[in-house]
Write a protein that binds this DNA or RNA. Structure first.
Length: 170
DNA sequence: CGGGTTTGACCAGCGC
DNA sequence: GCGCTGGTCAAACCCG
């Protein structure tokens, strides 16, 4: 079972999100099914002030975690997603990814792509999907925790990192 | 040859 | 149970 501490590690250390521009930032809490946090760039300050309540109010869609009916055998991996306005699907986040699947999802004319981190022993996955509502937006969902550092450097790492800290604060 | 991608098949969860 | 849906597998394929 993942603890909150471990989850915070993810937000403070393990994820690099360069090319994060605007749109929404989504966050799925590993301890509940409540998931997605929508934050517009110009709402950030407000969000920080008003905290969780406001964030719940901005929930726009669900990334639905895996539920287990009896008991809690299934470990729900920490997962979060963010949206970026981008022309390209592939965002260079400093990690190397191998595509292992692609699937058409309902109510969306664009397929969803599934990637796994290629680093040995690292089982982090991500999904990438463009919205048919607004095809300028790409949603990237990360699942799991990298067991290794990034291979590349990223310019806005510090900036992204501070955002992570802010949003993961209870 | 070695690594990644493509793509249909397969599978598990869920609702009816 | 059955069918739908989303996630994964894996063989074939591609490309340097």
């Amino acid at each position: 079972m993942l603890t909150m501490n471990k989850q915070e590690d993810i937000f403070t250390r393990n994820y690099l999100l360069p090319n994060f521009t605007d749109g929404f930032f989504l966050h799925e809490n590993s301890s509940s099914d409540y998931a997605l946090v929508g934050v517009k760039e110009d709402h950030k300050k407000k969000m920080i002030e008003e905290g969780r309540k406001e964030r719940e109010g901005n929930m726009i869609l669900s990334v639905g975690g895996k539920k287990k009916k009896n008991g809690e055998k299934k470990v729900k991996r920490p997962r979060f997603a963010f949206q970026t306005r981008s022309q390209v699907d592939i965002l260079d986040d400093g990690y190397r990814w191998r595509k292992y699947g692609q699937k058409a999802v309902k109510n969306n004319k664009f397929p969803r792509s599934y990637y796994r981190c290629t680093h040995q022993g690292c089982s982090v996955k991500k999904q990438v999907q463009r919205l048919s509502k607004d095809e300028g937006i790409v949603v990237t969902t990360y699942e799991g925790m990298h067991t290794h550092p990034t291979e590349k450097n990223s310019d806005n790492f510090e900036q992204i990192l501070s955002q992570m800290k802010i949003y993961s604060r209870p």
